[in-house]
Design a protein around this nucleic acid. Sequence first.
DNA 1: CTGAAAGCGCTTACAG
DNA 2: CTGAAAGCGCTTACAG
Lengths: 351, 351
Amino acid sequence: MEKPTEYMGVKEIARRANVSIATVDRVIHNRTGVSKKTRTKIMAIIEELNYQPNILASRLASRKTLHLAILIPQSQETDFWAAPLKGIQRAESEIKQYGVQISPYHFDLSDKHSFAEQGKRILAAGVDGVLLAPSFLEEATQFSQDCQKNNIPFVYIDSTLPHQANLCYIGPPLYQSGYLGARLLTFGLARPGKVGVVNISKEVANYNYLPIEEGFRAFFREHQPEKEILRVDIGQTDYASVAAGLAVVLATHPDLAALFVTNSRVSTVATFLEATNRQHLLLIGYDFLPENVAHLRQGTIDFLICHQPEEQGYRGIMALYQSLVFSASIDKVHFMPIDIITEENHEFYRN
Amino acid sequence: MEKPTEYMGVKEIARRANVSIATVDRVIHNRTGVSKKTRTKIMAIIEELNYQPNILASRLASRKTLHLAILIPQSQETDFWAAPLKGIQRAESEIKQYGVQISPYHFDLSDKHSFAEQGKRILAAGVDGVLLAPSFLEEATQFSQDCQKNNIPFVYIDSTLPHQANLCYIGPPLYQSGYLGARLLTFGLARPGKVGVVNISKEVANYNYLPIEEGFRAFFREHQPEKEILRVDIGQTDYASVAAGLAVVLATHPDLAALFVTNSRVSTVATFLEATNRQHLLLIGYDFLPENVAHLRQGTIDFLICHQPEEQGYRGIMALYQSLVFSASIDKVHFMPIDIITEENHEFYRN
DNA sequence: CTGAAAGCGCTTACAG
DNA sequence: CTGAAAGCGCTTACAG
């Protein structure tokens, strides 16, 4: 450790401008109560010196805590949301030393109202920024507009909404993710046979993940237009429902050769294939969940696609922090990579 | 932003212990000059209060700059090393506000002596920590031991050395990476034919990447022991040499169906395959370099394997920072994930 | 072995 | 519209 270079701070600016440091501070923070003339002069000096405020001193002196809220689903059924939460906690532990505090608000993925309710609680609590998963179109839109009205910056993760004032979206490029899924399917599918797209979701039209199926179909349209693609919709997420749904489809289409599950429920499908001795079917699905990984190791699931959910949580918090503390400019869209996980590389994957 | 909770700092500790804050400071930093009795008493209070020093105040008051050095190859031929450098710079921009300064030292990958020389310069400059690529067995061992003697923590990236006092290794699990390469090869290789492992390197025995080939061969030994694997060694990295080497092999073994290039020079092989109309050969290689990506998009390269070199640089610096500033404990080995890059997902990959 | 005091670079009332 | 002064929580000579 060694001594730094000469100091170029508010004191020096004040000296050159022949004012007090309080006035310099006012200009730096764009506060009122400075004559136009003085302001101009000080700004010129700041420019000239290429002054960078000392964040350490600034945050120490101001003694302010930054309050951030997160609004994400309660972990349930699958623990997909455990990963973003972990990333959020990692971010928190890194920046809490600099005075950041994070309050979690969880909603129930099968209850729109819980989202709206928790949103209201956040607004009432009065926070400085929000990280959210905009899982319900209408409720999330409403909440986003409320945030905007209150000048609270907000960040989307996992999925996004169009035409909102979100600071940024940090999540997967869903269309291309589905497209890659189709590519992996054909890569491993030398033999003929039909392909099934499996949607397992309680919500009739889960708008969030629609682009995945679009991308999937686009690939076949472009590369194998003659390939028959079956759509398998299963409206319940329990094993019995999934098994029943698949049994029907497989009875009707015995030449089904591959299944693409559009979300993390792929393990349920894998369990069914194992139970009915159909491991030879090619199976691809989403997310690095323990039960999915177990079937990957069994060889029943051939590929898992994953979008680094932990990193989404981490980067979402960091985007808010950088924006609020350093007034850093943030890219409106930050696409996560589309990761391919196999039996061979899974042990080094970290969400 | 809101007011924080009540203060629990050195002042409070000093009050409770009935000493001055200077003495408290001495205990906190484990300095000499405190009676055993006082020390014990203060430590108990610190324990009781679960005191966490305010890093902001600490670094502001100490006015010290942390000097880190990086010792990595000069970017040349390929720009593989541009990526770690980028990650290092990203880390620097994040922590320079907290008084960290990074000095780059570059060596020539085809000149061991340049490594030793730059290492000496670093030692002479007297730094607080070093991030290095231990590219030369003997020289890197020597340098590591010198660092240890001087109590300078050092971190390895990209490859590692056994039995050294490095703070940690941040890089790929090479053996498993080669193993995955073989898996991808067989996945796409429905047809029969021989498989070639291509080593393109000026160094006769590039110890760094040997485990890749071992892992590759292990997969075939375990899954397809009858498969014939050719070894193709090319001692020069220019296109003419590579083309000549490949031409000979392909003439002798016309049934060669797939090539696995153990490093980032795979684009040279791709160029040759394109020039001789052999795009149908399966081709897998390493690293997300522009020229490799170009051949991936052409379809000549089927898969690129990559180990997030930018992240290696970033995390390497952060490990040093966390260790030096926060005395954080660091995992000795941090394996990077083994990423699979295809034509379909490459645009979202960021090293 | 211990303490009083100045200072790090900035922010925040408060007074004018 | 502007400034003097106290203070953020810690570190650093310096004096004893």
